[in-house]
């Protein structure tokens, strides 16, 4: 429906929309994150929820400690190999629809601690990530922008058809295998479904 007609009808007190828009608007305006701070980025995340850069006005009213009641997991801080199985387990315990923001360089790819025997080089090796925020630590404004990017992404999700979100798709999996702590490293060292090898050997196209 064209915008002009919508505005005209609006002036008469008639509100026209699609179910998709309404459904997504409800979802994206009340994303409740899970209280999941790991390291330094957690302090910037807490600062974002404090009075100066209030995150609650974007819908993140409460940070739920329990994964069952949360929609969003903000991985803020370095994920170590000792902690990785717990992160994946928590992600599995969240109810669909669920989203992940990887905050900070450490969550994206290991960050400054990449040369680590205990550092997981990016949480997207095991779980799918929706928004990445670079920075060490990213400023509170960057976290707010990531939140808004996630809201835009949710706004654009179709309810039917190919691009529908996981919770409306009976075939899509929401549970990811939890890695096991082996003798030298985590086993498996990454989840090929989530983090595919991007280059084929010998093929440069």
């Amino acid at each position: 429906m064209e915008e002009g007609l919508k505005i005209e009808l609006g002036k008469q007190g008639v509100f026209v929309t699609t179910i998709e828009e309404l459904y997504n608007w409800g979802r994206r305006s009340s994303i409740w994150p899970m209280q999941f701070g790991l390291a330094c980025c957690a302090i910037e995340m807490i600062a974002t929820t404090m009075a100066r850069y209030d995150l609650a006005r974007f819908g993140a009213e409460v940070f739920r400690p329990s994964p069952r009641q949360a929609d969003l997991m903000i991985i803020s801080g370095t994920v170590t190999k000792k902690m990785a199985p717990q992160v994946v387990r928590l992600y599995n315990q969240m109810a669909e629809p669920k989203y992940v923001i990887a905050m900070g360089a450490c969550a994206i790819s290991g960050g400054p601690f990449k040369q680590g025997y205990n550092v997981l080089k990016g949480i997207d090796r095991y779980i799918p990530v929706d928004v990445h925020i670079p920075g060490c630590p990213p400023r509170p404004e960057a976290l707010i922008q990531a939140f808004m990017t996630l809201q835009k992404k949710i706004d654009g999700q179709n309810l039917t058809g190919e691009g529908r979100p996981r919770h409306l798709d009976a075939e899509a999996q929401g549970e990811f295998p939890v890695p096991v702590q082996g003798e030298h490293d985590l086993e498996p060292s990454s989840n090929r479904l989530v983090w595919p090898l991007p280059m084929k050997t010998g093929i440069r196209d």
Binding site: A39, T78, T80, K82, F113, Q115, G116, Y117, N118
Partner: peptide, 14 residues
């Protein structure tokens, strides 16, 4: 302990 062990001391040796 150890959930945030980021081997700072080993990195510093290089």
């Amino acid at each position: 302990f150890g959930y945030l062990h980021r081997n700072h001391e080993k990195i510093a040796e290089g």
